[in-house]
Amino acid sequence: MMNRLKKLFTSAQSQQPLAQDELKLAAAALLVEAAVMDGTFDDAERTVVTRLLTERFALDAEEVQELLSQAEATIANANELYTLTRTVKDNFEHPERIGLIEMLWEVVYADGKLDDYESNLVRRLAGLLYVSDRESGEARKRILDKIALKE
């Protein structure tokens, strides 16, 4: 009995880092999906995604590049986004999910224009992440205000 309990706690602890890695990958993959939705993943979008991942997950340059490579491979092989959004929804608190929507808006505006496919994607992802249209719109407005301040 004690061995079973010990094994249960040991396996639960060993799976925790895996879950964190999966969460990082899911969030990164959603950002990459937003970046490639208009058909290109240009330098401006790549720079924004890299900065956002660095800030959100406190990663160094090498870790971010590896995560970005994994995210690109995940998106290239993915045929649906539900698994990724479910991972985020189940592991991020509501304010963190709103923060991810804000990050997505920042990525789609990185190239200076909003494509219809990009805005549609963010709306769909907001729904899958249980972020209301109002909250998503407010996140979008914060990014537009942030971009206007930089110009």
Rank of each mutant, 00 (worst) to 15 (best):
T87W: 02
R97S: 02
I98L: 13
A78L: 03
A78I: 10
L84F: 09
E22V: 03
Y130F: 10
E45C: 00
V49A: 06
L121K: 00
R56G: 05
L8Q: 05
L125N: 04
L81A: 04
A76D: 08
M1H: 11
D145R: 11
A12M: 05
I101R: 03
E72D: 02
L100R: 06
G112T: 05
E96K: 12
K6H: 11
E80T: 09
L52F: 11
P17T: 03
K113W: 06
L8R: 09
R4K: 15
N120A: 09
G112M: 05
I98V: 15
N91M: 06
T40Y: 12
M103P: 01
E45D: 00
E106S: 08
R124H: 10
A12W: 00
N77G: 10
L114I: 14
L18Y: 14
T10A: 14
L84R: 02
A44H: 08
Q16E: 15
E80A: 08
T10G: 06
A44S: 07
E93I: 12
I143K: 03
F57D: 07
V88G: 04
A61W: 07
E96L: 07
T47N: 15
F9S: 01
L67N: 03
L144T: 13
L18Q: 15
L121S: 01
V36A: 06
L114N: 07
A148M: 02
A29S: 10
R140F: 07
R142I: 08
D42S: 12
D38L: 05
L144Y: 10
L25R: 07
V64Y: 12
F41I: 15
D111L: 01
V49F: 05
R123L: 06
T87L: 06
F57W: 00
I147F: 09
L125I: 14
E102C: 05
Y82R: 15
D116K: 12
R123S: 15
L68T: 00
A71T: 09
E80F: 08
D115M: 10
A44P: 01
A12D: 11
I143T: 00
D38I: 10
Y82C: 09
E102G: 04
S69Q: 12
Y82M: 14
D42R: 12
L125Q: 07
A44I: 06
I147G: 11
M103G: 06
V64Q: 13
P17V: 03
A12S: 05
R124Q: 15
L81Q: 02
V108C: 13
A71L: 03
L8K: 03
T50K: 01
A28R: 03
